[in-house]
């Protein structure tokens, strides 16, 4: 297992595309850093941005979703494209170990991209943000949020990291299934949205059918809203929770849901790898 990990991490860290992606992440983040520090920063301004708001801005501008789907597809499909898959799979290592090593290396790349955003965001926040007390009690982490109240910062950071890991697991599963870089990228970008749309159409049709039953229609609508809140493309949004009526526990639920996505899509990816025949 260690040999496989060493092999994949060597492959990862010698990829120029990794550093290109990290650079692409850093550029807009540094631009926002510059803007916050020069244009918007005023020491005497009592309503200046909070650390949470700065991190939100950085994550939004970084376009992590697109970069992760592109890099994961390239990395995940490379061995099939180059033919090196024949050598790797014929050495006697078990398929699930091969999958785990590749998955871990690819996830590390996604984590590194997030880390770039986080590091610059935290530095920017430490320099320019309004400091705020972080309530780490259970009420502070799980309690009800008032309008415009912010979640616990650590919970938020973990939540965003788990969203990254959840979408990465989905994109890696797609790459293992399709094994063609271009198609994997396209499917990775559009598939989550297509799933949401299909669910939306089904909900619309069922609501129309159940027009007389207002309770059922309301439940269908709530189910769809809940699905949208936690399904892959929407969980990338960092504005969830800023509007009235949300609770801090939503962030914790989001963490749990994304752990579930990692296990679900990671498990499916492993199954695909174990069953794959190298034609």
């Amino acid at each position: 297992m260690l040999k496989l990990l060493k092999f994949e991490y060597r492959r990862l860290f010698r990829r120029i595309s990794l550093y290109v992606c990290l650079g692409i992440v850093a550029v807009p983040v540094l631009y926002v850093f510059y803007l916050i520090g020069t244009v918007y920063f005023d020491e005497n301004d009592v309503s200046r941005m909070s650390m949470f708001q700065i991190l939100q801005q950085m994550i939004s501008i970084a376009n992590l979703n697109t970069l992760i789907v592109v890099f994961t597809s390239i990395f995940g499909c490379e061995d099939k494209a180059r033919g090196t898959v024949k050598t790797i799979y014929s050495l006697g290592y078990s398929r699930y170990k091969i999958f785990f090593a590749k998955f871990a290396a690819s996830a590390t790349a996604a984590a590194m991209m997030y880390a770039v955003v986080l590091i610059f965001g935290l530095i920017c926040g430490l320099l320019f943000a309004e400091t705020s007390y972080q309530d780490v009690s259970s009420e502070g982490i799980l309690g009800r949020m008032e309008y415009a109240e912010e979640p616990n910062l650590v919970v938020y950071i973990i939540q965003q990291f788990m969203i990254i890991m959840g979408v990465h697991a989905f994109y890696y599963m797609i790459a293992e299934l399709i094994q063609k870089t271009g198609v994997s990228i396209v499917l990775g970008i559009f598939a989550p949205g297509i799933v949401s749309s299909i669910y939306g159409v089904i909900t619309f049709i069922m609501c129309n059918i159940s027009e007389g039953n207002s309770e059922l229609v309301e439940k269908l609508g709530e189910a769809y809203s809940t699905f949208l809140m936690y399904w892959l493309p929407t969980t990338m949004s960092s504005v969830v929770g800023l509007f009235g009526g949300m609770v801090k526990i939503d962030y914790v639920i989001s963490i749990i849901v994304n752990i579930g996505y990692v296990m679900l899509f990671g498990g499916l990816g492993m199954l695909i790898t174990c069953k794959k025949q190298i034609k």
Partner: peptide, 13 residues
């Protein structure tokens, strides 16, 4: 693990 192979065209980076 005691077997080496070259199948079809070589897989290379």
């Amino acid at each position: 693990s005691r077997v080496g192979s070259l199948i079809e065209s070589p897989g290379l980076y």
